[in-house]
């Protein structure tokens, strides 16, 4: 109970503002009743979203688990709609987190490897800067042609986008490790591997945290972009598929899901990383835009 109260004290204004935003949306839907196509309002009100729209999502259930799909001739149902949401969300998340994991590990490893010597770092810095500036989202078609429009293509794309950020982030962070910590460890008898494990990794972590948050934003953008441009399932697929029929209400529901998942992933990461960083004097809040 006290926890709930504390939560509201801390986030009270935010919750009120979100509530007001929802109310404004409703008012707009009542005032601006134009329809994109007959029966599809440009601004779907909440009464539509939570009834007709929700149930219509059963279109995206592929069948199985004893719940037949609409394509098989079954009538739309809330069960099928719910299963559609869960299965498509899972598809998107698996692509996202697998890409994030692979990209993060490969990027960090390459970044640490390149930082081993001053010369290797200086060699990669300029080409890396160029590669970073290449607009990631414009490269979706390239990855589709290389890795296919199925699972591998999307994971590879997310991993590439995340990997580049990690690589650059790690190279830069290692460069910024205060020399006195390295000197201190060396005079105490640390060897190269110990230096990496006990000094360099922990001292780059605060900077890496900003990198990880940034890459979370990039990963969400990348998985969406990849799903927009060719997928048979996933939240991004539902959005573009609905767009083709101007089903604004379905797009709206899925967009809300996206916001919900993205916020949760940021919040969880923030919590975890702050715990790991309790040695830091003060950890500034990092906000990302993706």
């Amino acid at each position: 109970m006290t926890e709930v109260r504390a939560f509201f004290r801390r986030h009270g204004v935010s919750i009120i503002v979100l509530g007001v935003m929802a109310a404004i949306w409703q008012i707009l839907s009542l005032l601006y009743t134009t329809e994109a196509v007959p029966g599809e309002p440009m601004i779907p009100g909440w009464q539509v979203v939570f009834t007709r729209t929700l149930i219509s999502l059963s279109d995206y259930w592929q069948g199985g688990l004893g719940v037949p799909s609409v394509a098989e001739g079954a009538p739309p149902s809330y069960t099928a709609a719910l299963l559609a949401i869960v299965s498509n969300s899972l598809d998107t998340m698996v692509r996202l987190y697998l890409g994030l994991l692979i990209g993060g590990l490969v990027g960090t490893f390459l970044g640490l490897a390149v930082s081993w010597s001053k010369w290797s770092r200086r060699t990669v810095e300029l080409p890396l800067q160029f590669i970073r500036t290449l607009p990631l989202l414009a490269m979706v078609p390239l990855f589709q042609l290389w890795f296919g429009i199925y699972f591998a293509g999307k994971v590879a794309f997310v991993a590439y986008g995340v990997g580049v950020i990690f690589f650059a982030g790690v190279v830069n962070a290692v460069k910024n490790v205060p020399q006195v910590y390295i000197d201190n460890a060396r005079t105490q008898g640390a060897n190269r591997v110990q230096l990496y494990l006990t000094i360099i990794l922990p001292s780059i972590f605060p900077e890496l945290r900003a990198t990880i948050l940034l890459s979370l934003g990039t990963a969400w953008g990348a998985v969406l972009g990849a799903e927009y441009l060719g997928a048979q399932s996933g939240l991004g697929y539902i959005i573009v598929y609905s767009e083709a029929f101007a089903y604004l209400d379905r797009m709206f529901v899925v967009a809300l899901l996206f916001v919900f998942y993205a916020s949760i992933s940021y919040a969880i990461f923030n919590r975890l990383s702050l715990k790991l960083l309790q040695w830091m004097p003060r950890v500034g809040r990092v906000i990302v835009v993706g």
Partner: peptide, 19 residues
């Protein structure tokens, strides 16, 4: 090269903040 036989107290703060 450095060796634990020769210990140093640095001018700047060198205590590792993450330990």
């Amino acid at each position: 090269r450095p060796s634990p036989e020769r210990g140093m107290v640095f001018q700047k703060d060198s205590v590792f903040p993450w330990m």
